[in-house]
């Protein structure tokens, strides 16, 4: 009995000794900041930063090689926390999200054939370019949803990816994996997109799709800011000029241009303050006649008609017009929109 106890105790002691020695001999000096920073990072290992994973990125930040701005998945609080740890500056970058430039819903794009095979867009693309009649269409088998490290993409009933703006971090994995290259990253603030990638002429597009861009140019003509371009029969938004007024959305005959302001919570309306001297410049400039007011009197904006383009704010010489963000996600018919945030123009 005693010998058994002594033997086991002895073995235990030897094992402990071995571990103690090993932990000394094989000790790797690690900068403690790496572990702290790795904890703060989202931990999704999406690779948007260009490094192998969040652990590798943490090491890169500490070594000075990596810039915190490279991580698109981190929130502001976390980014500033890392900046504090490292004692460096962090400049907030424009928040982006993924947009699918195809809208083949409601029987939009017909199938040219019945595809049976691997349920992956990349694999289906190898078989005759995918089953959609439009060569630039989204194949809809859900590869983007499967590869998204943040679970931000779900597939709708008719095979179209739906991006959840609250989860999308613009890491870019879906952009890289889509075999048709129909997903792009766009700034959240510019919430209007042309959901089509087809460069075919209008007649060819109309033959296969009811919601594709036919290159009519109506959007280019209506845009007060020259923010719409038309190249190769495909309209595109110039995000540096777009003021997110939504006029293009209303004139597009095929509904190819969509407005995501409410989804992304970036809808703005104009509000005229007390500094207004009734010069009527704003009322005359408003493209939708949303400003009412007699000359030399306080002007008011009708929130139901205002499209948030900001032309009035540009015109006002007294700075009396401010653009505020509103949350229109409640029933539009009920009263004025709730003001969500203030802000200058």
């Amino acid at each position: 009995m005693l010998s058994a106890i002594l033997t086991l105790a002895g073995l235990g002691f030897l094992a402990a000794l071995g571990l103690a020695v090993a932990s000394r001999v094989f000790y790797v000096k690690m900068d403690p900041r790496v572990a702290t920073i790795a904890d703060i990072l989202p931990g999704a290992n999406c690779g948007a930063c260009g490094y192998g994973g969040c652990g590798a990125f943490a090491q890169a930040i500490v070594s000075g090689e990596g810039k915190i701005e490279a991580c698109s998945a981190i929130d502001e609080e976390g980014a500033h926390a890392i900046a504090d740890i490292m004692g460096i500056m962090y400049t907030e970058s424009e928040k982006e999200w993924a947009v699918v430039l195809c809208r083949h819903t409601d029987g939009g794009v017909a199938n040219t054939f019945d595809y049976v095979g691997i349920s992956d867009c990349r694999a289906a693309n190898l078989v005759g370019g995918g089953p959609k009649a439009c060569p630039s269409a989204c194949i809809g088998l859900g590869t983007c949803a499967a590869v998204c490290p943040f679970g931000a993409i779900t597939m709708s009933a008719d095979g179209l990816p739906i991006i959840d703006p609250n989860r999308c971090t613009a890491c870019g994995v879906c952009v890289a994996e889509c075999p048709k290259n129909v997903i792009v990253l766009a700034p959240v603030s510019s919430a209007v997109s042309v959901h089509c990638s087809s460069e075919d002429k209008g007649a060819a597009v109309k033959k296969v799709c009811s919601t594709g861009c036919i290159g009519c140019g109506a959007c280019v003509r209506v845009c007060p800011f020259e923010a719409m371009t038309m190249e190769n029969n495909l309209a595109a938004v110039n995000y540096s000029k777009c003021r997110v007024c939504g006029l293009c959305v209303s004139v597009c005959p095929t509904n190819a241009i969509r407005d995501h302001r409410d989804e992304l919570k970036v809808r703005k309306i104009a509000v005229i303050g007390d500094d207004c001297n009734g010069c009527t410049l704003c009322a005359r400039a408003c493209p939708v006649d949303a400003i009412a007011g007699n000359p030399k009197e306080q002007h008011t904006v009708d929130p139901a008609r205002c499209i948030g383009c900001g032309i009035c704010a540009d015109q006002c010489k007294r700075g009396a017009v401010s653009m505020i963000t509103v949350d229109n996600t409640e029933d539009e018919a009920s009263g004025p929109a709730t003001v969500v945030g203030g802000g200058g123009r």
């Binding site: 691997i118 694999a123 190898l126 078989v127």
Partner: peptide
């Protein structure tokens, strides 16, 4: 199982990644 399609798919993706 569509083994040939998997082979074609794998070959295409491996080439893609090499190119990238």
């Amino acid at each position: 199982i569509p083994l040939v399609q998997y082979a074609k798919y794998a070959k295409a993706e491996i080439q893609n990644r090499k190119r990238k």
